[in-house]
Write a protein that binds this DNA or RNA. Structure first.
Lengths: 221, 221
DNA sequence: CATTAACCTGAACTCTTTCTGAAAATCTGG
DNA sequence: CCAGATTTTCAGAAAGAGTTCAGGTTAATG
């Protein structure tokens, strides 16, 4: 799950980014409205966090530009405490949720997960596919037979991507995009390596290869 | 499905071409308006992607020349962001769709498929003929009895060509043109070889030979 | 009915993509 | 700074897709 954090305050941005990453997201950070608009349109984010107070423009304009282009990912806006006007305007401009500063990172993460679930039409905080269930809170994989296995961060992110849309073919490039942000670009073989690890967990049949196209999660077992 | 990409920026062109090829198209790329006009008139493309900003002429002129000749394939134009004038002029000049830069390749592919479907009078993203159905997203072949078989890239492209017009005779030369771009020119026996493979999938009766003329997909089974 | 060109067929070959196991590098908590 | 866990890289093996080839069949033609 890749997301975009638009935050002017460098310190806050870094702190948030690292916590979000710990929570299983890959995060791109930008400090300017200009860059935010471009990134939002070009990259494939699953959600955005937008601070309204930016040095080079109003955050609401960023949001409006996203909404008038094809950038349709859900957006959570950060407002100064008690600034009701911002909140109302933000929701009008197409925001999906808001959070007043100061806030606890836990709450931000919870709300982010919520708007992402909503935008995918999910209700629960877990992803089910075939015999498996992915627990978003505990980052672990449950099998039908009651067994359970905890996942490393990368294992979890990759599996969530695949299980989020069983039967759909994800190319290696797409998976790279969801797993890593703009600053990271490991060897593409990393996907193969992790697919291999996941297959050891869910069985080789469950993740199918479509040579030249990509990988898919097979929920028919 | 062969298509023509007219794009000045070499880097963008290469990236797009490789992704389009991954999506099952065979792509010719040109950087100049002059060559674009000639190729469009001479070759048999199923669609065109036209960047309006070209070094040696206006993309709209290319489009007009195509339209005034027999080049009637659907065309998607790429415009600079928010350039409404270009967009309007483009549609006036006969474009079938437009996309503002920057864009995601997925969207370009989706729109391309859409204008191609429209130009063939199709609505769904699958081709049906006889007992068979070709799923464009998953590159697989479904049979009436519920079975399903995924196809390799070349198998898929060839079958799509034949199934796209059941009963119509395609010469080997035509099939070669649809399967390969100007830079590739394998032995013509390759068509025979693939026809054989397809017959193993759909049954020998389903693809008929018209000796000296070509092959056709027989949807009466 | 002999000739010829077109087509079919199976296998071999090449090239690319993916798999695999292990080692190296990096990160993290103590 | 160390120890363990995790992430990343590497290089060779394996598998798969694309292509070619040689020889066998078939259909058209005079």
């Amino acid at each position: 799950m890749r997301l975009l954090l638009v935050e002017d305050d460098r310190l806050l941005a870094e702190g948030l980014a690292s916590q979000l990453e710990k929570a299983g997201f890959s995060v791109d950070v930008t400090r300017t409205a200009k860059e935010a608009v471009i990134l939002g349109e070009q990259e494939d984010y699953k959600a955005g966090v937008l601070d309204l107070g930016l040095p080079d423009g109003n955050g609401l304009d960023v949001l409006r530009k996203w909404r008038s282009s094809k950038a349709i990912f859900p957006v959570l806006i950060l407002t100064a405490r008690g600034d009701w006007q911002d909140k109302v305007n933000g929701l009008k401009a197409g925001a999906d949720d808001y959070l007043a500063k100061p806030f606890q990172t836990e709450e931000l993460i919870a709300r982010l997960n919520a708007i992402m679930r909503r935008s995918e039409g999910r209700v629960q905080s877990s992803v089910k596919a075939g015999r498996f269930e992915l627990d978003e809170n505990r980052q672990c994989l449950k099998v039908d037979d009651g067994t359970e296995r905890s996942l490393t961060g990368t294992e979890f992110r990759l599996l969530r991507c695949l299980m989020g849309r069983p039967g759909h073919i994800f190319s290696k490039e797409q998976l790279m995009e969801q797993l890593y942000n703009l600053n990271e670009s490991p060897n593409e073989n990393i996907i193969e390596a992790y697919i291999r690890r996941l297959r050891k967990l869910v069985g080789p049949e469950t993740i199918a290869t479509r040579r030249g196209q990509g990988y898919l999660f097979n929920d028919a077992v």
